[in-house]
């Protein structure tokens, strides 16, 4: 019983996250200016990280969490670097 509930919930959650990644990709391709693309890239990183965590829950594997941690840290660094580039014109002054 609990296996059925968890399988249905995790599958639904995976579908929601994949759809969220598709919507963020749509804004990334369509965004009128550069800051829209940076914002949607940040949202895409977060959705991919959550999708990796939910897949790890479904498979029962603990290795995917390390990947999620790395994706979270690198998403922060890349979004800050792109925002600094938009703000100043260069990343390291």
């Amino acid at each position: 019983m609990s296996e059925t509930i968890l399988t249905v919930a995790l599958t639904l959650s995976q579908l929601c996250l994949v759809l969220a990644m598709l919507l963020a990709t749509l804004r990334l391709l369509r965004g009128p200016r550069a800051q829209d693309r940076v914002l949607s890239l940040d949202a895409l990183y977060v959705c991919g990280m959550l999708l990796l965590v939910v897949t790890g829950m479904r498979l029962g594997s603990s290795y995917l969490f390390e990947g999620a941690l790395i994706i979270g840290a690198l998403g922060f660094v890349s979004t800050v670097a792109l925002s600094k580039f938009l703000l100043r014109g260069e990343v390291i002054e």
Partner: peptide
């Protein structure tokens, strides 16, 4: 069973809110 229900509600709530945020982004 109780933990399965709690986990299912938490995970579906979290991914549904993420989907709602992406929908607002578009």
């Amino acid at each position: 069973l109780w933990a399965a229900i709690v986990i299912a509600v938490l995970v579906v709530l979290g991914s549904g809110l993420t989907l709602l945020g992406a929908l607002g982004l578009v």
